[in-house]
């Protein structure tokens, strides 16, 4: 039983590249997830970050949480900016102006920056095949501007622009499938409730040295979803165990590997959050059906 012989948090890199003291809300799973992302990526990293919660909370100069070079840019631009960092620094290395070094070029954006406004520039960077990692932290709405829906908001969720009983009636955009369709080397979903899996995926993304590697990072949001800050990890875990947000990897756009199990009813996950409080049991049954269908579909792909 050697799985009980190691306290797994001791395996986590002790270096902090995204430090405490930032201004995230209490119980922000996203800030914790970014901290682990940065542990896995290490110091030789350049981050370009879209406007959003993580940008606002981490960079109120003269304070900053970033121990790596970090560039804030307009909402739609992180893919374009980090593409140019990569091309520019590789050109400088080729010309001998800076030393040869392996650098992780990382773009980060929220679900709005990734699945909505920044989709065009992201697709462009994918097509050009830059050596970069894109981390989409997904808290399923525009939280920075005060909780408006995004195309990554799930069916059934109330937000300020899908208010109350007018909850969102379109499905969450499947960003992973869109990325996989670009035949990029690596696409994976990750969740802060499974930090070992998260760090493994980031290290794997880091180790691949060509083409864009995409990480879809699930992050629960107490402020936007309506739950107690102490439950942030519990809810993140329930998202995986109920299969609402399964953990899986896609290599070269076709080799699917599922990394999570669980068969908790989606009811238990949804009933923990205020944003779903308007849903009837019948609505939740429909979500359960949808989750089952998507899980089946994913399993079919994983079987190949």
């Amino acid at each position: 039983m050697d799985k009980f012989s190691v306290f797994s948090s001791r395996l986590v890199d002790k270096s902090e590249n995204f430090t405490s003291g930032h201004r995230a809300c209490q119980g922000c799973a996203e800030a914790l997830a970014v901290r682990h992302v940065m542990k896995a990526l290490g110091r030789d990293t350049i981050v370009a970050m879209a406007t959003g919660c993580m940008e606002i909370i981490s960079s109120p100069l003269p304070l900053t949480s970033w121990k790596v070079p970090w560039i804030h840019n307009a909402f739609e631009n992180p893919s374009a900016v980090i593409s140019r960092c990569e091309s520019g620094m590789k050109a400088m290395m080729r010309k001998g102006k800076i030393p040869q070094k392996k650098i992780n070029f990382v773009a980060m954006g929220g679900d709005g920056a990734t699945a909505d406004i920044g989709m065009g520039p992201l697709s462009g960077a994918l097509e050009r095949g830059h050596d970069m990692v894109y981390v989409c932290y997904d808290n399923e709405a525009y939280m920075n501007t005060g909780v408006q829906r995004s195309s990554s908001t799930p069916w059934g969720a109330s937000t300020m622009t899908t208010p109350g009983a007018s909850w969102k009636r379109t499905q969450k955009k499947n960003i992973v499938e869109i990325m996989a369709a670009h035949r990029i080397p690596y696409t994976a979903t990750a969740n802060i409730a499974f930090p070992e899996d998260l760090e493994r995926k980031l290290r794997k993304a880091r180790s691949i040295r060509s083409g864009l590697r995409f990480i879809h990072l699930f992050a629960s949001c107490p402020t936007g979803w309506g739950f107690a800050p102490a439950d942030a990890i519990k809810i993140s875990r329930m998202a995986v165990l109920s299969r609402a947000f399964p953990l899986y990897e896609v290599e070269e756009g076709e080799r699917y590997t599922i990394n999570s199990g669980g068969d908790a009813p989606v009811y238990d996950y949804l009933r923990m959050q205020n944003r779903f409080r308007r849903l009837s049991d019948g609505d939740i049954a429909m979500i359960q059906e949808h989750v089952n269908r998507e899980w089946e579909r994913l399993n079919r792909k994983a079987r190949g």
Partner: peptide, 12 residues
Amino acid sequence: GYPITPSSEVAE
């Protein structure tokens, strides 16, 4: 519309 400070309340 699309969310942006300081106009988002119009949409809300």
